[in-house]
Simulated assay, not measured.
Amino acid sequence: MRWWWIGPAVGTALGAVDSVVNHVPIWLGEVGTARAERGVRSQVAEFASLILDAGWAWAATAVLVGWLVSRQARPAAGMLRGAVGGGLALVFATTAYYAMDVLFDGGVWWGMATRYWLVGSVLLGPALGVAGASVRRPGPVGALAALLVPAGAAVQMVVLPPPPESLMALPVRLTVWMSAAVATVLVIRARGRREGLAASVRPG
């Protein structure tokens, strides 16, 4: 697969899956039921929805794509690929999300929400893609780029937590916090080993 298809493929998958899990309670006829009283299948979908609807998850998608498309590229080319890949990922994610909503619910695709998030995708996607490409860089820049997603996810759980009326709110918060903590430890250890290896092979 050529690198420029990675962003559209990953973004489309994110947007489509996000829309699908959001519609599970509708298909099960549980829209009028309180969120905490819905069945097991709706609760599983609710858990996935609270993860995929979060801004950090969409940001992580652009960062991941930036990291993937910059593989085996020179630094400057990797940054350019990351910017393009991150932007395409979020544009295609937004397009797929609202296209699936129209498919399931009808209505108009080109609404205010679509325009708003497409503009946000164009503005933020390239920067997040560059951050993903920067993960490959040595030193503090690469370390900070690698910690961007876990830090952002943890902060969002504090600043914009899942709605308390959801039975899945606490499990989602705990899952994200634990995952962010584990990811942070792994990043620090991996960067430490990498820097140590680089120092050991330097002459003198």
Rank of each mutant, 00 (worst) to 15 (best):
W5E: 10
L50A: 03
V119N: 04
L52K: 03
L170D: 15
V176R: 09
A36E: 13
R41E: 11
R35Q: 09
Q43F: 06
A45Y: 07
A190V: 01
Q156D: 14
D53E: 15
R173I: 05
V24Q: 07
V63E: 00
A154L: 05
A76Q: 05
S42W: 00
L128I: 04
A93F: 01
W5G: 07
V155L: 15
L88I: 06
E30A: 05
P25A: 10
W117E: 12
R191Q: 06
T95A: 03
V122Q: 06
T61I: 08
L144E: 05
G107W: 13
G87R: 02
P8W: 05
G85K: 00
V176S: 10
G29R: 08
R38N: 04
R81W: 06
L197N: 02
E37P: 06
I188M: 13
S19N: 02
S49G: 14
N22H: 15
A190H: 12
P203S: 14
M79K: 02
W27A: 14
L123A: 14
A145L: 03
W56I: 03
G204V: 10
W56G: 04
A131D: 02
A145P: 00
G204F: 06
I6E: 01
W4I: 13
G15N: 04
L103P: 02
V119T: 11
V24H: 05
L160I: 11
G55I: 09
Y97T: 05
D53P: 09
A99M: 13
A143K: 07
R189L: 14
G129Q: 05
A154Y: 07
R38C: 06
V141Q: 11
E46G: 06
R71K: 04
G129T: 04
L14I: 08
W5A: 09
L28C: 10
W67G: 00
V69L: 04
I51W: 10
M157I: 11
E195G: 13
T33Q: 10
R189Y: 07
G139A: 09
G132M: 11
R74Q: 12
A180S: 15
V187K: 02
H23T: 05
R2K: 11
A183K: 07
V10W: 01
L50T: 00
G107F: 09
A89R: 00
Y116P: 04
W109M: 15
W67S: 03
G196A: 09
E30H: 04
L160F: 14
G192N: 13
L170N: 12
R74H: 09
G32H: 09
A9G: 13
T184L: 08
A143T: 15
A77D: 13
E30Q: 12
A183T: 15
N22L: 14
R136C: 03
A133M: 03
E195H: 08
A13Q: 08
A181K: 07
E37Q: 13
E165N: 14
A198R: 14
R193T: 11
E195N: 12
W67V: 03
W117Y: 13
A127E: 12
V10C: 04
D101F: 08
S179I: 10
L68S: 01
F104H: 03
